[in-house]
Design a protein around this nucleic acid. Structure first.
Length: 722
DNA sequence: GCGGATCAC
DNA sequence: TATGGTGATCCGC
C-alpha cells in the first residue's frame, strides 16, 4: 500500500456530493464504505505477461494440468454437491463473471482464465454458493426441457398462428424514422484516473477494491474484468495496480462529457454515470448531416472537451444502439442503418447474450432449448410463450425483430421506486451485534432519505448469511417514515423474525430498503408514490383478463425498463404518432392471455385473488368459454362485445394495409433477409419487408385509423406514451 | 403482497 | 485472508 493511495481514501471519506442525476446515486454510496482495507500498490514482481499467447504463471500452469478434463476436480469435498461432471463447465463459465462477452477480452484465452478463476475460487464459501446456484439452474433447465418435450407432442399450430399475428402487429409498429445513439465511455473510471496519472496508461490498473469497478485495457489483456473479485484479479495479474474510487472526479468528468452530448440532443438520457442515449434525428435534419459523420464529430468534441474517449452505437432504436456501442470499443463507433433488412441481418447472427436483459441465467436457459442467437428465436416462436411466460415471450419476439424503444428522455423524468442502503462486513452474529448493525443501517438509510427528501411506507430488511444465502423480510407501515429511529423500530421485528427462522444467524451483509415512496418536499416535486401531495402517481394497471384496462404497463425490458412516466409528461418525439401502439398490443395481449389459459393473474384487485383455486377457476373457464371466431383472421376471440369489435377493427386495418401492399406491388425492400422471418403460414403478411414502408405512409396520413366505421369506443383512458 | 431470483451498471 | 451496492422487474406462491 502506498501513503498516497491512503490519502486518497481518507480524502473521500466524508464524501458524496449531490449527484446531478438520479442514476448516479447508485454509485455514491460506495465512497462511504466502511472497513476499508489497505490498497494494493505496485509489487516487485515479474514483468507483465498477458494471457494472450501463452500463460506462464504458476497458477495457470497448474490450471492447465487440471483442466485437461473438466471432471477431474469433482472429488473436492467442497463441491460434492455437484451432480454430474458436465455441470463443471457451466460453473466455470458462471465464475468467469458477467462480462465475458464484453469487449477488451478478444485476445484472451478465456478457458485458461476460467481455469485460474476456478482454481482460485475452489473451496471458498462463495464458490459453494455458486455451485448451489448452478445446480438449481441445471434442475430448472431440466424442467424447461421436459416441458418443451411435452409441448412438442401436442399441436402447436394455434400458438404458431398467434405468434405470427403478434409479430405482424409488432411489425406494423416498427419505426425506422429515428436515429438513436448510445454513447459509452471507455473504461470510464480507469480512464479518468489515467488523465491524472498518465504513467498508468501502460500498466495494468484497476479501480475499486474487493470487487473491481473497472480496469484499464492493459489489465484486460490478463483476463481481468470489471466485477471481478480483487484477489482473483491478483491471481490473473500479480502486478495489477489498484486505485480507490473517487466519485467527485468521475462526476466532474461525466459532466464534461454530458455538456457535449447536450449539443446534439438537449433531452438526452443519462443511463448511468458513463452511458447515455441520444435521439439525434432532429440534429441531423437541422445540420443536414450523415449519422456517422455527426457521431464522429460528437466523439471528437467529447474528446477535445474532456480528454476522454467514448464509443458509440448508432441505430434506429435504443436496444440496437446499445449493442452497437460495444462493437468497436474502445474509441470507435458502429452503425446499424435505418432499414429493416439491415436490422434483421444484424440480429440474425447476434448472440442473445449481447442483448440487454439476457444475463447468464437466461442465456443458459435459452441455449438449452436451442436459442443461441437472436435469429434462433423465430423458429421457436410457437413454443416460447409456454416455455418462458408472457413477458419473456414478448421480450424475445421483439428482440428477434430487432425492435426497441425510440423515445429518449432525460433521466430526471423517471421516478424512483425504492431507496435502500446495504453493506457487507466480516461475519457477524449475536442478537446485540446484529441490532447494533441494524441501527447503523437505519442511520445510513435515513441519510439517503434526508438527502432525497423521500419517505416510505414499506420497509424491507435484507440479509446475506455467511453462506451467501440471502433472505428478505418486508412489511407495510402504518404511515410513511424516514427517521432512523422509526426505521429501526419497524425493522427490528423483521430482524427477530429472521433470527428465529435461521436459528444461529451469522451474517455477512445487512440492508434496509424503503418502497412505496412519497416526497417530503414542500413543493411537490418528483418523489411519487402514495402519500405524495402534488404528483400523485398514475395508477398503472397491468393487463387484466377480459376486463377493461385503464392503463397498461409496458412489457418487460422492451421499453422503459420499468420506469414510467409518473405525471404524464408529454413526450414530444415524433415516433409516437397517431397509431396507438397500445391498441395493437392490447388485443394481442388479450388474445394470448385469454386463449393460452396462462396464469395471467396480474390483477390489482385483492378480491380477485382471494380464491386460492385460481388455477382451477382458470381451467374451468377455459372449458366453458365459447370463443367467437374472427371473420378476418379466423382466430378465436373472447366472447366479449367490445373486445371482439376491437379485434375485428384491428384485423380490418391490417387487412387494409395488406391490400395496399399488394396494390403497391411490394417491390421495394424485397431482399429476402432473415428468411424465416418473411413467411410463415396463417395470418402473417406475405411481404413484411414492405409493410413498414407502407405503414410509414399510414402514419403520415393518419388514414389507418378506423378504416371502417367503428362500432364502439376504444377503451379509452390515458394512452401510454412509448 | 411477499420472497426469491435475475439483471444492469 | 477471501467475491459490492443500488435499483428495478418478474415469477411463483
Amino acid at each position: 500500500m502506498t501513503d498516497g493511495l491512503r490519502d486518497f481514501v481518507e480524502d473521500l471519506q466524508p464524501r458524496q456530493l449531490p449527484p446531478p442525476l438520479q442514476q448516479q446515486q447508485q454509485y455514491a454510496h460506495i465512497s462511504r464504505q466502511r472497513g476499508r482495507r489497505p490498497m494494493f500498490g505496485q509489487r516487485p514482481v515479474a514483468p507483465p505477461q498477458p494471457l494472450s499467447p501463452n500463460v506462464t504463471s504458476a497458477a495457470a500452469a497448474a490450471a492447465a494440468q487440471t483442466g485437461v478434463a473438466d471432471s477431474n476436480n469433482i472429488n473436492d469435498e467442497s463441491i460434492r454437491n455437484l451432480p454430474e461432471p458436465s455441470s463443471q463447465s457451466t460453473l466455470k463459465k458462471q465464475l468467469l463473471g458477467p462480462s465475458v462477452l464484453k469487449s477488451g477480452q478478444d485476445n484472451v484465452d478465456q478457458s485458461k482464465v476460467a481455469e485460474i478463476i476456478y482454481e482460485a475460487s475452489k473451496g471458498s464459501k462463495y464458490f459453494a454458493n455458486e455451485s448451489r446456484k448452478d445446480l438449481e439452474l441445471t434442475k430448472r433447465i431440466d424442467r424447461i426441457l421436459r416441458k418443451k418435450a411435452e409441448i412438442e407432442k401436442i399441436d402447436t399450430s394455434v400458438d404458431l398462428k398467434r405468434a405470427d399475428a403478434y409479430i405482424a402487429a409488432l411489425e406494423l409498429d416498427r419505426d425506422l424514422s429515428q436515429t438513436i445513439v448510445h454513447v459509452d465511455c471507455d473504461a470510464f473510471y480507469a480512464s479518468v484516473e489515467e488523465l491524472d496519472r498518465p504513467e498508468l496508461k501502460t500498466v495494468p490498473m484497476a479501480v475499486g477494491k474487493g470487487v473491481l469497478t473497472t480496469c484499464n485495457y492493459e489489465a484486460r489483456k490478463f483476463g481481468v474484468r470489471s466485477g471481478m473479485a480483487g484477489h482473483i484479479a491478483i491471481k490473473l495479474c500479480p502486478q495489477l495496480i489498484f486505485l480507490p474510487l473517487n466519485f467527485e472526479k468521475y462526476n466532474a468528468k461525466a459532466k464534461e462529457v454530458r455538456e457535449v452530448l447536450a449539443r446534439y440532443d438537449e433531452r438526452f438520457e443519462a443511463a448511468s454515470c458513463d452511458e447515455a442515449y441520444l435521439n439525434i434525428t432532429g440534429y441531423l435534419a437541422k445540420h443536414n448531416l450523415d449519422p456517422e459523420e455527426a457521431v464522429e464529430k460528437m466523439r471528437q468534441e467529447v474528446f477535445e472537451h474532456s480528454k476522454l474517449t467514448v464509443s458509440a452505437g448508432i441505430a434506429p432504436n435504443a436496444r440496437i444502439a446499445k449493442i452497437c456501442s460495444n462493437k468497436n470499443k474502445p474509441n470507435g463507433q458502429f452503425r446499424v442503418g435505418n432499414d429493416r433488412s439491415i436490422v434483421m441481418s444484424f440480429m440474425k447472427s447476434l448472440p442473445v447474450r449481447k442483448v440487454n436483459g439476457v444475463g447468464r441465467v437466461f442465456e443458459r436457459e435459452l441455449e438449452a432449448v436451442g436459442i443461441k442467437t437472436c435469429g434462433d428465436i423465430y423458429p421457436l416462436r410457437g413454443l416460447i410463450l409456454k416455455l418462458f411466460g408472457q413477458k419473456a415471450y414478448e421480450f424475445l419476439i421483439s428482440v428477434s425483430l430487432g425492435l426497441g424503444r425510440t423515445v429518449i428522455r432525460p433521466a430526471e423524468e423517471y421516478i424512483r421506486k425504492s431507496i435502500g442502503s446495504e453493506s457487507t462486513f466480516p461475519d457477524l452474529e449475536g442478537t446485540a451485534n446484529l441490532r447494533e448493525k441494524l441501527r447503523k443501517t437505519a442511520e445510513a438509510l435515513e441519510e439517503d432519505l434526508t438527502k432525497t427528501e423521500l419517505q416510505g411506507r414499506t420497509l424491507a430488511l435484507k440479509v446475506k448469511m455467511f453462506t451467501y444465502e440471502e433472505a428478505i423480510r418486508q412489511k407495510p407501515l402504518p404511515y410513511p417514515i424516514w427517521k432512523a429511529g422509526d426505521v429501526y423500530e419497524y425493522a427490528l421485528p423483521l430482524l427477530t423474525k429472521l433470527e428465529e427462522e435461521y436459528k444461529p444467524m451469522k451474517l455477512r451483509l445487512m440492508g434496509l430498503r424503503m418502497t412505496n415512496l412519497s416526497s417530503r418536499k414542500k413543493s411537490g416535486g418528483s418523489g411519487g408514490g402514495s402519500g405524495g401531495n402534488f404528483f400523485k402517481p398514475v395508477i398503472v394497471k397491468k393487463r387484466k383478463l377480459g376486463a377493461e384496462v385503464e392503463e397498461k404497463w409496458e412489457e418487460w425490458p422492451e421499453e422503459e425498463w420499468g420506469k414510467y412516466d409518473e405525471a404524464g409528461f408529454e413526450v414530444r418525439r415524433a415516433d409516437e404518432g397517431d397509431m396507438d401502439p397500445d391498441e395493437l398490443k392490447y388485443f394481442d395481449g388479450l388474445e394470448s392471455d385469454d386463449l393460452v389459459g396462462l396464469e395471467c393473474d396480474d390483477d390489482d384487485d385483492e378480491k380477485e385473488r382471494n380464491e386460492k383455486s385460481a388455477s382451477d377457476e382458470e381451467e374451468k373457464k377455459e372449458e366453458e368459454v365459447v370463443y367467437w371466431p374472427c371473420p378476418i383472421c379466423d382466430l378465436p376471440q373472447m366472447p366479449d362485445d367490445r373486445a371482439f369489435n376491437d379485434h375485428v377493427d384491428y384485423c380490418l386495418s391490417r387487412q387494409t394495409i395488406r391490400e395496399a401492399v399488394r396494390e403497391g406491388g411490394g417491390e421495394r425492400d424485397t431482399t429476402p433477409v432473415a428468411p424465416p422471418l418473411t413467411r410463415t403460414g396463417g395470418s402473417a403478411s406475405p411481404e413484411k419487408a414492405t409493410m413498414s414502408t407502407v405503414f410509414k405512409e399510414y402514419k403520415q396520413t393518419g388514414s389507418h385509423k378506423n378504416p371502417l366505421p367503428s362500432r364502439r369506443g376504444r377503451p379509452r383512458g390515458k394512452k401510454r406514451k412509448l
